[in-house]
Design a protein around this nucleic acid. Structure first.
Lengths: 379, 379
DNA sequence: CTGAAAGCGCTAACAC
DNA sequence: GTGTTAGCGCTTTCAG
């Protein structure tokens, strides 16, 4: 459909504009865009002919090689560029994907956006950013995207269940929505999720194998993924018969500073843990820093594990043991799903069968080790 | 405008498809969007009237309060939403801002995008992401944005001078382009830059005051900002009469891993530095990690300074002394400039006089201290 | 006060 | 082979 575009661009240069004027080039001087009518006029043919030629109209309607070249030439000459708005109005896809993120500030999502963007680009799509930062804007964000965004489909990144209206509104819009990292809460919406339970279970197994039993959990608001991770922690503790002492579960915001504070709280407990499982790498990084400030040596005195394997996890001091999220794979899956759905005739969506779950993997680095022999314990 | 939605939905369900099926709600069943014609039909008035009312047509044309309410009601009922494409085609702004980033992967730009997005949103704009990752796609990225992006203006983030075609093409498009963090290279394009020289000079002064003289510089490709930072370093060294020993300037990619490697190289020198100035925080973080792995204590044995003050700079171990980039202010300035330009009648752009330079500020944290007394030096 | 008509830039039936 | 016509959804004169 959108073929033969290269050609048009390629030569456009040499044609227009005055030749000389070496350095002090003229100012931008934005001009009215060249329309198809201009090309038609310049060639002496009708707009439809131009359209046919420029769109490489299939075999249905043949055009004389003569006019074809003439038109093509003129198009280049004038640097004609099809107006995407007009095309979209006619029903063509906008090639725009909306991405609603609960909080772009969250490093995990910052990385995720990048991944989504790459995946989208691979399919010829661009990404329009929207953030439902805090609950402040509520569903308005969505409205904005839908109204100004011109998107073919929307990706909801992260759990938005604290903004019920958003999901409601989303369900019956005329463009498809897919949820990414929303937490596997059962919802009638196509989704791509990660198996949080598997991740945490692996983490716990790793720690137990090292000899830890006093393991604390530092997590955030009980939403989506975080919620599932905490639950998996509790289950794992139960299954090894370890007691979750009071204070062993800390609930804070997902920031490094909060992670640091939570660590302080946990270490001030009568029986401090020998290992801490953080619900996210961001928290873990804060914990690492908190340990440093309190002169707690990691991993000698305390083991720390994160979740997500964000880019920074490998560069911390010490490098963070964490659970690798297959971010790229998941983003790609979500993008593909969204595009697929966008292609389906409205209403033909099979169902919430469109749910994919990915398995994370633990990656052991430097922040975990056997617990220090506690006083009174035979080594 | 978008009120009373529940009502409409509530009934929409029972009409279509099979009746029963209590819990297993039928799938989204995306429907054809409601157009203005529908509202007109439902109300028995003409489209023009609806348009006037819905747009709150100024004082120019009065409408009877009666029809007004009737139309408004119908619009709610039907969940009418104006089609932005059609509006844009008629000349209305798309409220979309394109952001071309050289590399979204770069943590600084990741943060910057977020800032830009917030600033844009404040003006009612959404951001369309584009990345000129590597030189791979070259100017094609721009084309994509221009063609599919529907943007009112474009922000170029970071230096793109290694993709000359991009800048060329950009100059004579019909929508305005503003450069952000492009490095103050003289170009006939509106820009928002940072005073790199001032930042580095402050850094150097800080180090010199602490007593350092053997100062190395680890930077990246000589583009834009980085280029200016290195130059400022060289000048500062000269001005204090310190010699830039061979190997004191390392040139690597802007990644933590490369920073780590560069540190190793620098510390292996016959006369290793007592302080290292990194061109970016990303490099500095890698340097911190490199020091940790080589058992070089920071800041006791080595002082490290970064540039940018990205979010992570405050959470490193030890916390990074760096130069704070007024990111939010700059993003806001750039966004505002872009929107301003987008509003100007094409060609009316005054010129490259639209150039703003912001001053960064050093923020001293834990990674800098006086140099260790070298053997043979009186303390 | 309101309707009819034209047109934004493009595409797709239908003619000739 | 190519031109005419109609219309995507909306705004905006211009007539009533």
């Amino acid at each position: 459909m959108a073929a033969g575009r290269r050609a048009a661009n390629a030569q456009g240069d040499q044609s227009t504009g005055s030749p000389s004027i070496p350095d002090a080039r003229r100012m931008p001087a934005r001009a009215r865009p060249v329309t198809m009518k201009d090309v038609a006029a310049a060639t002496g043919v009708s707009r439809s002919t131009v359209s046919r030629i420029l769109n490489d109209a299939p075999l249905t309607v043949p055009v004389s090689a003569a006019t074809r070249t003439r038109v093509l030439a003129a198009a280049r000459e004038l640097e004609y560029r099809p107006n995407p708005l007009a095309r979209a109005l006619r029903g063509a896809p906008t090639m725009l994907l909306g991405a609603i993120v609960r909080d772009i500030t969250d490093p995990f999502f910052a990385g995720a956006i990048e991944t989504v963007s790459v995946a989208a680009r691979a399919r010829g799509y661009n990404v329009v950013l929207g953030h439902a930062h805090g609950e402040a804007t509520k569903a308005h964000e969505l409205a904005a995207l839908l109204e100004a965004g011109h998107c073919d489909a929307i990706l909801m990144m992260g759990d938005m269940s604290d903004q019920p209206r958003l999901l409601e509104d989303l369900r019956d819009t005329h463009i498809p929505v897919v949820a990414l990292w929303q937490g596997s809460e059962l919802r009638s919406i196509p989704a791509v999720n990660v198996d949080n339970q598997a991740g945490v279970t692996a983490t716990m197994a790793h720690l137990v194998e090292l000899g830890h039993r006093r393991i604390a959990f530092i997590g955030g608001r009980l939403l989506g993924d975080i919620q599932e991770r905490q639950q998996a922690y509790a289950e794992a503790m139960a299954s090894i018969g370890a007691e979750v002492l009071t204070g062993y579960i800390q609930r804070v915001d997902n920031t490094a500073a909060d992670g640091e504070a939570a660590l302080a709280a946990v270490m001030a407990l009568p029986v401090p843990p020998t290992a801490v499982v953080a619900a996210t790498d961001v928290l873990a990084i804060g914990i690492l820093r908190g340990a440093y400030r309190s002169a707690i040596s990691v991993p000698a005195d305390l083991s720390v594990v994160g979740f997500d394997d964000i880019a920074w996890a490998a560069t911390t001091v010490p490098a963070l043991t964490t659970v690798r999220m297959p971010t790229a794979e998941m983003a790609t899956a979500a993008v593909n799903l969204a595009i697929l759905l966008a292609g389906e005739p409205a209403g033909e969506v099979p169902a919430a069968e469109h749910v994919q779950v990915f398995r994370p993997e633990i990656v052991v680095r430097e922040s975990t080790a056997p617990p220090a022999a506690t006083p009174g314990t035979v080594r």
